[in-house]
């Protein structure tokens, strides 16, 4: 069996559906409507409208990533401490919402948060002040954290389970207390998991347009919303591609960092 020949279908497929499409984004992004070279689509990121959208996206996705990390790390520690084995029911329970349709999860929060929604219904029943965070950046952050939390829990949990118990025992034997063991042994060893989790939360949060649309009520424009509108409503593919190139710079930056910290591909959970 000639193994070289076997690679042909896949190489052809990835050239046609991965490489060429990406080149087209660059082509459209670097040309104007008449096909002449221009940098104006990329420079367009500097207009107040676009830079505000990019800045909001960065701000909201960074906040969500930090919240996810702070919530997920203790959770992963506790799950790992239970030593119930990899495919245990408990671990499954905490990542199960990941498999629920993404749109439905976001819709659920809309239902809960709306002015006449479930939470306010319950609050008024007890004559408490109503909550009004729907259509605010906070609602978008909540949606991001809810949707992407499992992506942070899984990689951290995976690295934690791989830490050899004898390394921890050794640290304890050598006189480190629990906090020292955590800071000097467990935390450094779990960095690849954290980096992988941060990438898996940050990239989709930075580029989302769905969460901001559903929970932001169209009032919160993130860079993803701007690009989506350029492609589906305004039909200005050149501008949309130009802004996507800017977005990709952030993703590439992120990829480089995760490639450096995770050379072995060990924590690739998906």
């Amino acid at each position: 069996m000639n193994k070289k020949l076997l690679s042909v279908p896949y190489l052809f497929w990835s050239a046609l559906f991965i490489i060429i499409p990406l080149c087209m984004v660059f082509y459209y992004g670097l040309t104007d409507k008449n096909g002449a070279f221009t940098l104006s689509n990329i420079a367009a990121i500097a207009t107040p409208e676009h830079s505000k959208a990019l800045w909001s996206a960065i701000r909201l996705s960074l906040i969500s990533t930090v919240i996810c990390l702070l919530l997920a790390y203790p959770l992963a520690m506790i799950l790992n401490g239970m030593k119930t084995g990899h495919d245990s029911l408990t671990v499954l329970i905490f990542i199960l919402p990941m498999w629920m349709n993404f749109l439905l999860r976001t819709m659920a929060w809309q239902t809960l948060l709306e002015k006449t929604g479930v939470i306010n219904g319950i609050l008024s029943f007890f004559h408490l002040q109503n909550l009004s965070i729907i259509n605010t950046p906070n609602a978008v952050i909540l949606g991001m954290v809810y949707n992407f939390l499992p992506f942070m829990v899984l990689p951290i949990y995976n690295v934690l389970t791989k830490i050899d118990q004898s390394v921890i025992n050794a640290a304890r034997d050598l006189g480190a207390n629990e906090v020292q063991t955590f800071l000097k042994v467990i935390l450094p060893l779990s960095i690849p998991g954290m980096v992988s989790g941060i990438t898996m939360v940050f990239v989709p949060a930075l580029t989302t347009f769905v969460i901001s649309n559903i929970l932001g009520g169209g009032k919160i424009l993130l860079i993803g919303n701007v690009i989506e509108q350029e492609f589906t409503q305004t039909n200005n593919w050149n501008l949309g591609s130009g802004l996507s190139i800017v977005l990709m710079l952030f993703i590439i930056f992120n990829m480089v960092i995760s490639a450096v910290t995770d050379k072995e591909g060990e924590v690739n959970v998906l």
């Binding site: 499409p21 990239v203 989709p204 993803g224 996507s244 990709m248 993703i251």
Partner: peptide
């Protein structure tokens, strides 16, 4: 690794 929106467009 790429953003889904970029893959999509």
């Amino acid at each position: 690794l790429n953003a889904e929106i970029v893959t999509g467009i």
